[in-house]
């Protein structure tokens, strides 16, 4: 499902080299697996998730997602892979000119789902995250926690095979965090591979599971 072989990531481009933020990572997360992703701030958790989301390419090493070697895949093959990945961004990344509903509907529309089949799933997903009453609101009119829940709904609505969540409880209270964990576990039970980056030690303690542990860009525990 997800396999890394000696993967390194250096930011920057050919003209100006940036910092090396991930060093020789090798691990496997099997299909339907669950992993916490832990490590201090700046360890490289977001960078690793960006790699898995195919938003950056490895500087070295090989990255397999859904059995496809993303290093040699043609650029035109990547969108179809991305559509099978759900991502909750640490900074939400909602489109400010769209309503909560349209933000959540975006992945379905990009996948070419007919409009008649978009609304029921989007409405259900927004109900799940407790935002039925806020469907028409723009992100600017939502609280931080509400925005995060829209971001979660958008990541999950397309029933992705790989679900990546970057600090998804950062703006949620304990009750909402528990509700989110139930959602993620349900997705996992239905077959999705789930990777959750978090600082929230209490949450991890309540939901023990295998953890990938990063420190200064190196993997010190592969679960």
């Amino acid at each position: 499902m997800v396999r890394l072989e000696e993967v390194s990531l250096q930011y920057g481009n050919a003209r100006r080299a940036g910092p090396m933020v991930l060093h020789d990572l090798s691990f496997i997360v099997p299909e339907g697996g669950f992993r916490w992703l832990r490590g201090p701030s700046g360890a490289g958790k977001t960078s690793l998730l960006r790699l898995l989301h195919l938003a950056v390419r490895p500087s070295r090493g090989r990255l397999f997602v859904f059995g496809s070697d993303t290093g040699v895949a043609r650029r035109a093959e990547l969108p179809a892979l991305r559509r099978r990945i759900g991502m909750v961004f640490q900074d939400f990344r909602l489109l400010t000119h769209l309503s909560a509903f349209d933000n959540v509907a975006l992945p379905l529309r990009l996948a070419g789902r007919p409009e008649a089949k978009v609304a029921p799933d989007v409405a259900e997903m927004l109900r799940w995250v407790g935002l039925s009453a806020r469907m028409a609101a723009r992100p600017a009119a939502l609280s931080g926690g509400e925005q995060q829940r829209v971001a979660i709904a958008r990541a999950v609505v397309g029933r992705p095979s790989l679900l990546l969540a970057d600090e998804p409880t950062g703006n949620l209270d304990d009750a909402q965090a528990e509700r989110l964990m139930r959602l993620l576990k349900e997705m996992n039970r239905l077959g999705a591979t789930v990777i959750v980056a978090t600082h929230n030690a209490a949450l991890v303690a309540r939901h023990p599971g295998p953890a990938l542990r990063l420190e200064q860009g190196r993997l010190i525990d592969d679960g």
């Binding site: 938003a55 179809a80 892979l81 991305r82 559509r83 990945i85 000119h97 975006l106 990009l110 996948a111």
Partner: peptide, 11 residues
């Protein structure tokens, strides 16, 4: 917006 939509799998 373009980078996001690209990330969500837009061709």
């Amino acid at each position: 917006a373009i980078e996001l939509v690209h990330g969500l799998g837009a061709t």
